[in-house]
């Protein structure tokens, strides 16, 4: 009885591993294809050799950088995403703090309205949002087109009801005594917020920055609408464009995909423990 259960649990473990491998096949194949000669990609199909390479080559990465201009699109994306995350923190954190701690007329109503905007998807309002930012395009007479595009890519997504909600929860979970001590020392709202409240919710701040980074790194529809010149494209748009330009070299396209993926994966892996910590503390203090 005991032995048969042992065997069946081994079998279930093996099955779990098999399913894990099956789920990872597309991504494994992408990495393998980006590293092997174009001809080998096609010759290896249908055999387990599809997922390994015995003669790794960097030719596809060089092709993606030369032909696809990955470096420009990576820089554009990085700047736009950093603007969203940091600009977002500057407007969302004070708002979250005010909703958590200050008393003012209409607080509950305004907060409720804000939270309701969480469910409005960008896809629904993309055309009128384009109409909202379009008049500022005449600024390109003064500003550089690249500067305008970075603004159009980032400013509309800085304020975010979800981030305000998340940060407010964290501020609410801080013990009030901390801030009361600061008030007794004569600090005003601003100094209490900046020197006492904000440093105490650091894991939540990292979480919010990271969520913004990952979500907007992957944006596609909005960049498709506002990026009108090749040198203003984001990396996702650059990949989609590279993919439609014949001749389609599979290895180079996959190399572009890998390059578009790695910065975000690195950010996620580095930030993972902060996210876990901020979620855990929210749970413990409530």
């Amino acid at each position: 009885m005991n032995r048969s259960r042992g065997i069946s649990s081994e079998l279930v473990s093996l099955l779990a591993l098999a399913v894990a491998v099956a789920f990872a096949i597309p991504v494994l194949w992408m990495f393998a294809a980006s590293l092997k000669p174009e001809q080998a990609i096609h010759e290896d199909l249908g055999s387990p050799r599809s997922f390994v390479t015995f003669s790794p080559t960097s030719e596809h990465y060089i092709a993606a950088i030369r032909r696809g201009d990955v470096s420009t699109t990576l820089v554009n994306t990085f700047v736009a995403v950093a603007l969203i995350a940091l600009g977002g923190l500057c407007v969302n954190a004070p708002a979250a703090y005010a909703f958590a701690r200050m008393r003012f007329p209409g607080r509950e109503l305004i907060f409720l309205l804000l939270v309701m905007t969480i469910i409005i998807p960008l896809e629904v309002i993309v055309i009128p949002l384009f109409l909202t930012v379009r008049p500022t395009r005449s600024l390109t007479a003064v500003l550089d087109e690249r500067v305008w595009t970075l603004g159009a890519l980032s400013i509309p997504f800085m304020a975010k009801a979800f981030n305000i909600f998340l940060l407010r929860q964290q501020f609410l979970s801080l013990p009030r005594s901390l801030e009361e001590a600061a008030f007794l020392d004569g600090a005003g709202w601003w100094r209490t917020f900046w020197h006492v409240a904000l440093p105490n919710v650091r894991p939540a701040i990292v979480t919010v920055l990271l969520l913004d980074f990952v979500v907007h790194w992957n944006d596609f529809l909005w960049p498709l609408v506002v990026c009108q010149r090749a040198d203003t494209r984001t990396v996702q748009l650059g990949l989609a464009n590279f993919f439609t330009q014949p001749p389609i070299l599979w290895g180079a396209v996959m190399a572009y995909g890998v390059l578009a993926t790695i910065p975000m994966l690195v950010a996620l892996v580095l930030g993972q423990r902060w996210i876990v910590r901020s979620l855990l503390t929210t749970g413990l203090k409530q």
């Binding site: 407007v91 005010a98 200050m102 003012f104 305004i110 800085m158 304020a159 601003w190 917020f193």
Partner: peptide, 23 residues
Amino acid sequence: TAFLFVAPACALILLFVLWPVVN
């Protein structure tokens, strides 16, 4: 003070979410 803390975020959401919905 509360108004100053809340205003930037609310203005941006008004301009870039609610106004497009109306529009």
